[in-house]
Design a protein around this nucleic acid. Structure first.
Lengths: 232, 232
DNA sequence: CGAAGCGTTGAGAGCCGTCAAACTACGTGG
DNA sequence: CCACGTAGTTTGACGGCTCTCAACGCTTCG
């Protein structure tokens, strides 16, 4: 790994938690690699060889069953995935594919488990990350079981609108197809949902969405911190 | 806490992971308490005062939103809940109520967090538990998003049948109403689903269910270890 | 014996998925 | 820079799945 890459990697929170004298060991067998779009980084059912941390780009986590497929999450820089599989040394439960050109840090799973036993601070960081991930999935489960498609879409818009500045406007960070999967509906349903949302002041134009009547949308979405707030 | 209770408590895996000299500290402010049916042990949104471990009885974890409610999980002896909230010191994401008379060990959350930093073995145990829980929720999310009500019910029967011996027969461990919530459908839908399953050799009689044609049910359910196997 | 809760069944409506076709946006190679 | 092909998006039609409301039988418990 080149010096500038090393610097980049050491800035990653999970890595930074490890004591400096341990970082070398952690990265000994690690790769920092670029991947083009569409590449499948990991496939569900396989044994966990590496912990993956996203340095750059967008990764879609999804799962297949019969001839169906569903998106579990979409992660950006700083995100890590398949942490639980690595810690338990059990097969991946989900697959991952590159959504936009990415740089991924891949740390051998054995190195992660070893350092977990040696470096308490590193262990604490991993556990926190895992706890946050747990709560994220649980929120998503509640989102799915407690809300309709229309409500999920509205809530997503409200939340996303609050996260990325630019008042009154939202830019989709990925294709509508992917968003539909993330929200748990067929692409056609999302398309129709946007039409329905016109009555609530929402205007869609490609990836640009204008929120004309925030209070109306807010009322429809009925956002709940225990479902929507990623930091709660 | 009385001696016999202490013995009971020390047999709990999570507690047993801690070094003997630390156990006292862990249990200093702890309660081992009985609760009758219907009691709500924790309520979502509240700050995490205790880590809860089930010694005896059945606990339903559920969540409310608007005027709806959904069951997230049903736990039995040995199960722990709201571990992630305790570790992160963030509000509970779900509520818990007693389904059948229970004894619960309640450990002050601060004691858990403190010992986490001191006792590496205890920390490792907690993290493993958390990782298993994470994978459990993820499997449930896949179950919800990838399968129909009929498939979920069939898969649940197959899995439950494999777990508790007694070939060709399954006994529901709780009310059908609760099962319906757990499987993510209205009670009426579960009732009709059982009728549909007659065509696959399933006969329902109160809480006793006879599986007359295992291969047929198996084919319908198409069980998948990465969704159904709690140990995968 | 009456009340309350669970479970079942019927009827109806709404939500959501699938299939198909048309349209649009985008990237590639000429 | 344009032409083309591929992939994403929209719309219509349709069917099926799932929810809600309501009524009724059954069991349990006070």
């Amino acid at each position: 790994m080149r010096p500038e890459e090393l610097e980049l990697v050491q800035a990653i929170p999970l890595v930074a938690n490890a004591a400096p004298e341990h970082v070398g060991e952690l990265l000994r067998g690690a790769f920092l690699q670029r991947f083009p779009v569409h590449v499948e980084l990991v496939r569900e059912g396989e044994p966990p060889d590496f912990l993956h941390i996203i340095v750059e780009g967008q990764i879609e986590l999804f799962s297949r069953y019969r001839d169906r497929e569903t998106t579990v999450a979409v992660l950006g820089p700083g995100g890590s995935f398949i942490l639980a599989a690595v810690l338990l040394d059990k097969p991946y439960l989900k697959s991952a594919r590159v959504l936009s050109p990415a740089r991924i840090l891949m740390i051998p799973s054995e190195a992660v488990r070893n350092l977990f036993g040696i470096d308490a601070n590193f262990a604490r960081g991993l556990t926190n990350e895992l706890a946050v991930a747990y709560r994220g999935v649980l929120k998503e489960l509640k989102n799915q079981k407690l809300r309709s498609s229309l409500e999920r879409t509205a809530a997503w818009l409200v939340r996303h609108h609050a996260e990325v500045g630019n008042p009154g406007e939202v830019a989709l960070p990925f294709d509508k197809k992917v968003l539909a999967g993330r929200l748990g509906m067929a692409p056609e349903v999302l398309s129709r949902t946007f039409v329905t949302l016109q009555a609530y002041g929402v205007a869609v134009n490609g990836r640009r969405i204008v929120i004309g009547d925030p209070p109306a949308l807010f009322k429809l979405a009925a956002p709940d911190d225990l479902i929507d707030d990623p930091h709660a």
